[in-house]
């Protein structure tokens, strides 16, 4: 699969039209050998540690977040069996159930598409400078890395 590959990545405020993305990826990659499309959508949880979530506030360090997102998409699409990669990470205030991250991978076969989508997800979570505040019924928490939570109340205690 050559230079006609589809590689896109962006930090976005709004939702993605999944049907449009799927249609575009399939139509642009079928002719270069793709036959599988894996998609992953991460959405905001409504319940964390027994408390209800009001919203998540995502902030990206730009332009570095967009640049890193594209770098990951480009690097992972170098695989000869990958025909298309489209990654979107949303920022701003998101309510429970709202999509926060989308990953689409068009590849030669299902195994490659699934594995590549998972790998891209793990890389995005670790490498892209995006930070989030979780607002819950029991208070606000800064989410650090993949799961540590620091209550905001602890920060005011420091002063």
């Amino acid at each position: 699969m050559g230079p006609e590959k589809v590689v896109r990545a962006e930090v976005a405020l709004s939702e993605v039209s999944v049907n449009d993305v799927v249609r575009e990826l399939v139509s642009k990659t079928a002719g270069i050998g793709a036959g599988a499309l894996a998609s992953f959508i991460g959405f905001v949880k409504g319940l964390v540690n027994g408390s209800s979530v009001v919203e998540l506030e995502y902030a990206a360090y730009e332009p570095h977040a967009s640049k890193k997102l594209l770098e990951i998409a480009e690097e992972e699409s170098l695989d000869e069996d990958v025909a298309g990669v489209y990654v979107v990470h949303r920022v701003g205030r998101l309510k429970p159930g709202e999509p926060a991250i989308y990953i689409f991978v068009a590849a030669k076969n299902r195994g490659k598409a699934f594995r590549k989508a998972e790998r891209i997800l793990e890389r995005v979570k670790r490498e892209v400078p995006i930070y989030k505040l979780e607002k819950r019924s029991d208070g606000d928490y800064w989410v650090i890395g993949d799961g540590l939570r620091i209550p905001r109340s602890k920060l005011s205690d420091l002063k």
Partner: peptide, 10 residues
């Protein structure tokens, strides 16, 4: 220069 904690995307 920026000072950040580990990323929390996703």
């Amino acid at each position: 220069v920026a000072v950040v904690p580990p990323s929390a995307g996703g």
